[in-house]
């Protein structure tokens, strides 16, 4: 009685084989539910509950504990600005304000068109390249307020089907925590992490 696409159900089955106990698959399945609908709906949580055999209330208890499961519709691009200590010291707040101002979307909101969501987040492990920003969890380091504005405009105009960290770093980034090695062709396709087992990794040619 699943409302998930056959492909997603196949992924779900595959994911469940990776854990010794069903319930351990809750977190990856919640990501699948997000990928399926663009956000984590109540129906999505009920579905996950059916897969692992727990009540929707139990699924909700887990889903609401973590910040990356977005329970209201989220923009195609989720811009996360770090304002934790290391980034704050180097102007993280100004970057956040620039992003909010340029996109017209305040922290925690999404624009009417459903294109951009903005949030400020705690440390994303990029203190060496502060201030840092993520778009759909793909990292850009060494961002200035002006570059941040450019990034927002670019997302609005170019509307990349796949969000690629290296590309954004080249266009809008500065100092990095360390060199990232070879360029990645792949990237994120929505406001959730791009990770092979989740089937959420998009490649530019596909886009």
């Amino acid at each position: 009685m699943s409302q998930w696409s056959e492909a997603t159900q196949e992924r779900a089955r595959e994911i469940m084989t990776r854990y010794p106990q069903k319930r351990s698959a809750v977190m990856p399945l919640l990501y699948l539910a997000m990928a399926e609908e663009g956000y984590l709906s109540d129906a999505g949580m009920e579905e996950v509950g059916r897969w692992v055999g727990i009540t929707p209330a139990q699924v909700q208890a887990v889903a609401t504990f973590y910040t990356m499961y977005k329970r209201k519709p989220t923009g195609k691009y989720l811009i996360s600005c770090c304002t934790s200590i290391s980034c704050m010291l180097l102007g993280g707040d100004d970057v956040l304000h620039a992003v909010e101002d340029e996109s017209g979307v305040p922290h925690g909101e999404t624009d009417p068109e459903g294109l951009i969501s903005v949030e400020h987040v705690e440390c994303i492990g990029a203190g060496g390249g502060a201030p840092a920003v993520q778009v759909n969890y793909e990292l850009v380091e060494g961002v200035t307020p002006d570059k941040a504005r450019e990034l927002v405009r670019w997302l609005g105009n170019a509307r990349p089907g796949v969000v690629n960290g290296d590309e954004m770093q080249e266009l809008f980034g500065g100092v990095r925590s360390f060199e990232w090695a070879i360029r990645e062709e792949n990237g994120a396709v929505g406001p959730y992490p791009a990770f092979q087992p989740l089937g959420t990794v998009g490649s530019e040619d596909k886009a």
Binding site: I54, T55, A57, Q58, Q60, A61, T64, F65
Partner: peptide
């Protein structure tokens, strides 16, 4: 054995 009331958020 009917966990219908649970914690939410953190």
């Amino acid at each position: 054995g009917d966990p219908l009331i649970e914690f939410k958020s953190r």
